[in-house]
Every structure is written in C-alpha cells, then in structure tokens.
C-alpha cells in the first residue's frame, strides 16, 4: 500500500479551494472552538463542490488549516479506500497538491468519517471529524433556540433520562455509536457517529481534535490533553464493544471489527475496520487468526 504520494495541484483554484477570506472566517471559528472545548461555534459554512452530508464541514476545516507542508490522510469507516475517502483525498490532491498518505503515523492531518484510527495519535497531529448532526440534545429537543439555552445553563439531566430509560428497558445503555460525552467537565458533546469503541481514544489525546458540521454550520473542538468523559451511571459504567473473534487478516483482538458476509449461506468473517492498522500488522508478520475468522453460524 502507498506511503506518501504527491499529486500535481490544479492551478485553476485557490490553494485548498476556499478563498483566503473564507479560511480566515473558519479559522476564527476554530480558534474560538479550541478556546471553549466542546462548545459548538456557529460559522458561515459555504457550499462546497461535495454535497452537504458528505463531509463538507470536515472539508472546510481541513481546507482552512492545511498548509503546503502537511501530509493528509482521509478515512471513511476506518478505511482509506472507500469511495468517499477516495473522493475527498482526490479533491485535496487536486486543489492543494499536498502529499497524501494512508499511514496514520505519517499524516499531519487526518480527516475522518465515523472512526478514530487504532494507531494512537501523537502531539502535532490533527484529527478532523465530519459531523452530520452536531447537537447532542437534538433528538430530545428539536429546537436550536432551546438547546442553546440548555447548554448555557448546563441543563443536561434529560440526557441522563435517556440513558436511564435504556437501562430500565434493556438492562444496559443501548447506545452504540455517537455516544454522548462531556468535554472538560462542561459541554455535552456529540462525538459524531464513531462507535463508542472509539470514545476512550478522545480522552486526553495528545492530538488536536476538530469537528466540522457543514450543513448545520457548526465547528467544535477538543484541544490536546482535554478530558472527554462518556456519560454513564456509577453502577452502570461506560463500556465498549468486544468481539469473540480476532481479525481474520491480522489476528488483532484489540481493534474494531467489520463483519463481512462471505456467501449466500450467511457465512461471515470479521476484519479490522482500520485498513492501515491491519496492513501494518500484516506487514509486521502478524498472521490471520487460527480459525481463519470464518464463523458460518455467527454468534
């Protein structure tokens, strides 16, 4: 798989597509977001040449922070080669001409949809999340005017009511992705639809985490080394998903696994959702799990 590759920039556009005035506006929003961890800063999101809901918020954030010395990695569902990741990577290769990579450790900016890489991030890296719905209280209160007031007054009891209902009905909290967190002990935040498996990686991460919601016109941030706590109850603590299987390709037992249906009889196998993590392990000599990961009966 490729390490760093460089593409020729299309000179017909401003560097990274957005004009400098727009970038300044977005950067101001980012600075404010970093200063108030977890607070959703409204910004004048622009129409981008990709549809709303397909990562326009993340793209505007990336376009505003990227420089010629940066190396960009784009993932969708953890993979570098899913169509939307390919499309966004190609967009920046064309408009910014910066080097791109699939290697987590080689990237300075990683734009992501729905995952945090398995490889721990380091200081100096920036993780840019694409966010569909930024407001954690949205399903409980549809009105923006009211949710902003709830944030201002820290009226978050209703979110715990939802978790209470889960436990009363199912015996445990039944939220598996986009699991709400409290940032720096203050703002309730939606981590975007990452699996709750990834939530602990946000806590005190040395990397800067930026969240862009283009259609909803909001930017928020978790600065490096900031506490991110997943909501829970003292007697029902937050816990992440576990698998009975190991990755069928690299044998990893510590990564998020995608289920692949392999035949019409319902045979299935499990492989790492993070393709870079998986390939790195395979290259390092890890072998597929003993059972070949095939599990015709399912759990």
């Amino acid at each position: 798989m490729t390490r760093v590759s460089t593409a020729a920039r299309d000179g017909g556009y401003t560097f990274a597509y957005l004009d400098e005035q727009t970038k300044r506006m977005v950067r101001r929003a980012i600075l404010k977001a970093v200063a108030i961890p977890g607070y959703q800063v409204p910004f004048a999101s622009r129409e981008m040449p990709l549809p709303f809901g397909w990562g326009t918020g993340g793209i505007q954030v990336t376009a505003s922070i990227i420089g010629r010395d940066d190396t960009l990695k784009v993932i969708d569902q953890g993979a570098d080669d899913t169509v939307n990741a390919v499309s966004i990577r190609a967009f920046f290769a064309r408009t910014a001409g910066v080097p791109t990579t699939t290697r987590t450790q080689d990237a300075t900016i990683i734009q992501t949809r729905h995952r945090i890489p398995e490889t721990p991030l380091r200081a100096g890296q920036i993780l840019v999340y694409q966010v569909p719905i930024p407001e954690p209280l949205r399903w409980l209160e549809p009105r923006e005017a009211e949710t902003r007031r709830m944030h201002a007054l820290q009226e978050y009891g209703v979110m715990h009511v939802r978790l209470y209902e889960d436990i009363a009905r199912y015996g445990h909290i039944a939220t598996s992705y986009d699991y709400p967190v409290r940032v720096n002990g203050r703002y309730l935040m939606r981590p975007s639809p990452i699996p709750k498996f990834d939530n602990p990686k946000m806590d005190r991460s040395p990397a800067l985490q930026l969240f862009g919601a283009g259609r909803e016109k909001r930017i928020y941030a978790v600065p490096p080394h900031t506490g991110v706590r997943s909501l829970d109850f003292d007697d029902h603590p937050f816990e992440v998903q576990k698998w009975d299987q190991a990755c069928a390709l690299c044998g990893s037992t510590a990564s998020f696994l995608d289920e692949i249906v392999t035949d019409n009889q319902g045979g299935r196998m499990f492989v790492c959702s993070d393709t870079d993590h998986c390939e790195t392990r395979v290259r390092a000599g890890h072998v597929e799990s003993a059972a070949g990961g095939r599990d015709p009966g399912g759990p």
């Binding site: 209703v158 715990h160 009511v161 939802r162 209470y164 009363a168 109850f233 003292d234």
Partner: peptide
C-alpha cells in the same frame, strides 16, 4: 419516558448518577 424516569429526572438534573 417511563414513570420511573419521570420521577428520576429532577434527581438526575441535579447530579444523581447512581442508577440503583
């Protein structure tokens, strides 16, 4: 939401975090 959650809401709003 359930009767229990209705009663518990004000407790959770002021910081109760023990489900039991």
């Amino acid at each position: 939401v359930s009767a229990g959650a209705n009663i518990g809401e004000r407790l959770m709003a002021v910081g109760a975090r023990h489900y039991g």
